[in-house]
């Protein structure tokens, strides 16, 4: 009996942790954290269009005709995600788009690694071919996986404090 009660208490505690106000504050931190990631990643790729294009070209995945549109559009997509995350508007959708994008990045980096080409991922500016000794594929993939966890949390629990979503729902 006692153990059953303890179980129920634990379950309730878990539910409070996932659904309560504390979780919504945690969600706010996750949302703003992901916003900083996208904002930083986007801004770092805006200044030199040729560099952004070359970062994409270096993966040797996309045809030349798509290299520039992707290299030029991607930073602005990232900035748009950052803006929406700061506002807390459509958090679940934005987090889902973030997760898809991050999965695509992880796939791209893994593919470059598997094919044995030596590039910088260009995740936060830079990019292009580097010396074999300077590749950091594992770190890049782990970092993106961390960001993926942030996105996953927001897909799971999109309700966060100080968000337009909460304001609209009220």
């Amino acid at each position: 009996m006692a153990s059953q009660q303890a179980d129920r208490g634990r379950v309730d505690g878990l539910r409070r942790a996932v659904d309560g106000a504390a979780a919504e504050w945690f969600g706010l931190a996750v949302r703003l954290g992901l916003a900083v990631v996208w904002g930083w990643a986007g801004l770092a790729k805006v200044s030199d269009p040729a560099e952004a294009a070359q970062a994409v070209r270096a993966y040797e995945i996309l045809p030349e005709s798509l290299v520039k549109p992707v290299g030029w559009g991607l930073p602005f997509l990232e900035l748009a995600l950052a803006l929406l995350l700061v506002l807390g508007l459509g958090t679940r959708i934005v987090a889902a788009v973030s997760a898809v994008l991050l999965l695509a990045f992880v796939a791209g980096i893994s593919s470059a690694w598997a094919r044995g080409i030596s590039i910088d991922c260009g995740c936060f500016g830079g990019g292009g071919a580097v010396d074999e000794s300077q590749t950091e594929y594992l770190q890049e993939i782990l970092r993106d996986t961390g960001f993926l966890l942030l996105s996953a949390w927001l897909v799971y629990r999109p309700r966060t404090k100080l968000s337009l979503d909460a304001w609209l729902a009220a």
């Binding site: 805006v46 269009p49 549109p69 030029w72 559009g73 991607l74 602005f76 997509l77 803006l83």
Partner: peptide
């Protein structure tokens, strides 16, 4: 954002 980005960078 994407359309504006491509146009501006172009």
């Amino acid at each position: 954002a994407v359309v504006v980005g491509v146009v501006v960078q172009n």
